[in-house]
């Protein structure tokens, strides 16, 4: 536990000291929010679009923004750098549990994204966005985003450990984009064309997005929120288990 705390603290220091890596993870999703809302907001006016539930189209788009911010996982690139320069071996040569080594760097990720989610929500408020499920909903939104960020960072860390290549790890990060575009990103799932609806139904990101959307657009509705938490839980547990296994067998 001590090692996990120490390695997690290092991850947070690293994030704080590399604002050049942190800022794009906030600015790029906000850019997409502005562009998407700018393109589609007039098609979906608040007063005549039932699925907006009285909010602006920015509220409908907000989950995609948060999910994009939570899917950069820049820490994995630092891991590749440490594998290449030998620092990872230095840590492996200490008597700390391999689980701590696998999870240490990931601890910073949910904290980073929790803060970033709050910042994104605060930025969105002046544009007519509110979290309809209240403070509990906001907390759940933050937890969901932080959970997704942990799973995705663990996925990228897994790629980094297996390939030991910055190029491969960078490319793996792009996997999120097709997944994002196969979600009900612009309209609810029941308004998608049939092939897109089928694709979105099989896409796990859809359920995380719909849970986030439920928290933003409607009063707390556990039936709509639960699927996203289930997907994130399974994703996080699976990715962490794979990471621990990879670090244990790392040569």
């Amino acid at each position: 536990m001590n090692a996990l705390k120490v390695l997690g603290g290092r991850g947070l220091r690293e994030a704080w000291r590399t604002p050049d890596a942190l800022l794009p993870t906030l600015l790029i999703p906000l850019f997409f929010l502005v562009v998407n809302v700018g393109q589609a907001a007039r098609i979906f006016p608040t007063d005549t679009t039932p699925f907006l539930r009285g909010q602006s189209y920015a509220a409908f788009q907000l989950p995609a923004t948060i999910l994009l911010a939570a899917s950069f996982g820049t820490a994995a690139l630092y891991l590749v750098e440490e594998i290449e320069n030998g620092y990872f071996d230095k840590i492996r040569a200490t008597p700390v549990s391999r689980t701590s080594i696998a999870l240490g760097r990931l601890i910073a990720e949910p904290i980073k994204i929790a803060i970033m989610t709050i910042v994104i929500v605060l930025i969105a408020i002046p544009f007519g966005v509110s979290v309809s499920s209240g403070i509990i909903g906001l907390i759940l939104l933050v937890i969901l985003a932080a959970g997704w960020a942990t799973g995705y960072a663990a996925f990228l860390q897994f790629v980094a450990l297996k390939t030991r290549s910055a190029a491969a790890t960078n490319s793996a990060g792009l996997v999120f984009f097709p997944l994002l575009f196969l979600t009900p990103n612009f309209v609810p799932r029941d308004l998608l064309t049939e092939p897109m609806e089928i694709a979105a139904t099989f896409n796990p990101v859809t359920y995380v997005m719909e849970s986030m959307r439920s928290l933003i657009l409607e009063p707390l509705n556990w039936a709509n929120v639960a699927p996203g938490f289930l997907v994130v839980s399974v994703f996080v547990v699976a990715m962490l288990a794979i990471n621990v296994q990879v670090v244990r067998s790392y040569d």
């Binding site: 220091r13 690293e14 630092y78 750098e81 440490e82 320069n85 030998g86 071996d89 230095k90």
Partner: peptide, 10 residues
């Protein structure tokens, strides 16, 4: 080891 294993950000 042969590669000087240090974290450049610390």
């Amino acid at each position: 080891l042969q590669e000087v294993g240090l974290d450049p950000r610390q």
